[in-house]
């Protein structure tokens, strides 16, 4: 977290309400008035937004704006941080994500996540992809498991490159391949939502382009939420964009509209490169 007092990011005017349309017809996830506290610090302030199916939502904003924090609310990754507290309502198909009875294991099987730095397990390529189906008991036998692994790798566009060395360690792949392996691992459990936390920030432009193409293909089957530092990337891969600023959700809208005709002053200043 950057120290906000010393950053060059301008403050949010008081009584700020999100500009643009936060709702969508038939939302998969609805977030209403979500706050996140790290100890006494309020990292996210009253964020409300809907997530649509078969669509990519890009979350952009300067460092420390709360976009990653918000992303980690969806699969309750914030639970693992001591002193983190989430208030408000987050519902996945009408079911409260933060309800006591909600099992996080089940939740994370429905909402997969791809991280900033490719983090394959120090196991074989096969075992990396097979891990999710194994722990969730998705394959009845070895044949079915083989099938899941193959389909997942194919959908992640990695099959042709690794089909002859499935037993090789996942860490022996290049950075871009590792990230696609992580995506294959995530889709192997057939989730409904995929969260991506700056998935390309550790990759070169060619690997980035491949991942972006992949995201576009995966959109047909999943709801995808991607956090990115690159506005070009947001413009390329997403249909909706949300701009966060110091913990506030400033503006939400169709990506084309946000980048061509931002309504809020802060959004405009950010995408035109005045700060950030």
């Amino acid at each position: 977290m950057t120290d906000i007092a010393n950053s060059t990011v301008p403050p949010v005017p008081p009584e700020c309400k999100t500009t643009g349309v936060v709702t969508v017809p038939q939302p998969l996830i609805t977030a209403r008035g979500v706050n996140v506290f790290y100890g006494d610090k309020r990292a996210l302030k009253d964020v409300s937004i809907d997530i649509a199916n078969n669509q990519v939502l890009a979350m952009i904003g300067p460092s420390g704006c709360g976009k990653s924090t918000f992303l980690r609310c969806f699969n309750r990754m914030n639970d693992t941080i001591d002193g983190a507290r989430v208030t408000g309502s987050l519902q996945l198909e009408g079911q409260d994500i933060y309800e006591k009875r909600q099992d996080v294991v089940q939740l994370r099987a429905r909402i997969g996540m791809v991280f900033q730095k490719p983090n394959p397990f120090p196991k074989s390529i096969y075992d990396n992809v097979a891990y999710g189906p194994r722990i969730h008991g998705l394959a009845a036998d070895r044949i079915e498991l083989d099938e899941i692994v193959q389909t997942s790798l194919k959908r992640a566009g990695l099959w042709e490159e690794v089909k002859d060395r499935l037993a090789a360690p996942g860490t022996s792949l290049s950075g871009g391949q590792q990230q696609r392996l992580c995506i294959a691992r995530t889709i192997a459990v057939n989730p409904e939502v995929i969260l991506m936390d700056e998935p390309c920030s550790a990759l070169d432009p060619i690997a980035t382009a491949r991942i972006e193409d992949l995201i576009d293909e995966l959109r047909a089957s999943y709801a995808i939420i991607i956090v990115t530092h690159s506005m070009q990337q947001a413009a390329r891969v997403s249909q909706r964009t949300a701009y966060f600023h110091l913990g506030d959700l400033i503006e939400v809208g169709e990506t084309d509209r946000i980048f061509t005709n931002p309504r809020h002053k802060l959004t405009e200043d950010y995408i035109t490169g005045r700060f950030g």
């Binding site: 294991v105 991280f115 891990y131 999710g132």
Partner: peptide
């Protein structure tokens, strides 16, 4: 990152 990967996959 290994812990995160496992937790993110839904491992208990």
């Amino acid at each position: 990152s290994i812990r995160e990967a496992a937790i993110g996959m839904g491992a208990s």
